[in-house]
Computed example of a mutant assay.
Amino acid sequence: MIFTTHRLSVIMLALFIGFVTNCNNNSGPDNESPHYFEFTHQGEEINYTFVAKTSSPEVISKVEDELSKPMDQRNLHIHGTIARGSKEYNSRWSWHFVPGQWDLVEVSAEVCDGRPGMVEEDLDYWVDQVGTFCPWSSVVSAEAKVE
């Protein structure tokens, strides 16, 4: 019995150490520091900005690559799931991109293309029926500073 109890204690200690080690591992996407990026389109009749949050290393890398190009050479737009609710980093709008559920893409279906004001005016349709937002005219303009 002592052998079994000792062995069980060693196994539990090993599991506990493994658990603590995994909890302190910051390499996963959920543990990355959040980044906030401003998107815009400025033209003669169109002028908007919004901010999206992500902790995905892959998305952050794509965005940084786009930001390294001159504005007129940026060819990727945001595409992702949107949800109701204003966020402190996107307070101008009553919706936001769900962190971890958006990406930069070159092509999207027309059904999710639009302007932020269109989403604002018919939020139930965009969130409940379309589910995603992919403004083709959007380009990342800067990393936003959010405190």
Results as ranks from 00 to 15, higher is better:
Ile2Val: 13
Thr4Glu: 13
Thr4Arg: 14
Thr5Gln: 08
Arg7Ser: 15
Arg7Ile: 12
Ser9Glu: 10
Met12Ser: 11
Met12Thr: 11
Leu13Phe: 15
Ala14Val: 09
Phe16Ser: 13
Phe16Ile: 14
Ile17Cys: 15
Phe19Ser: 09
Phe19Val: 13
Val20Gln: 06
Val20Trp: 04
Asn24Ile: 01
Pro29Asn: 09
Ser33Arg: 03
Phe37Val: 11
Phe39Pro: 10
Phe39Ile: 12
Thr40His: 11
Thr40Tyr: 14
His41Phe: 15
Gln42Asn: 13
Gln42Ser: 15
Gly43Phe: 00
Glu45Arg: 12
Ile46His: 02
Asn47Thr: 06
Thr49Arg: 10
Ser56Val: 08
Val59Ser: 02
Ser61Ala: 14
Asp65Ile: 04
Glu66Asp: 11
Glu66Gln: 15
Leu67Cys: 10
Ser68Gly: 10
Lys69Asn: 12
Lys69Trp: 10
Arg74Ser: 06
Leu76Trp: 12
Ile78Gly: 07
His79Val: 04
Arg84Leu: 05
Glu88Pro: 11
Tyr89Arg: 14
Tyr89Ser: 07
Ser94Ile: 03
His96Ile: 10
Phe97Trp: 06
Phe97Ile: 05
Val98Asn: 01
Pro99Met: 00
Gly100Arg: 00
Trp102Ser: 01
Leu104Trp: 05
Glu106Gly: 09
Glu110Gly: 02
Asp113Lys: 00
Gly114Glu: 01
Met118Tyr: 09
Glu120Thr: 07
Trp126Cys: 02
Val127Met: 03
Gln129Trp: 05
Gln129Arg: 12
Cys134Gly: 08
Ser141Leu: 09
Ala144Ser: 14
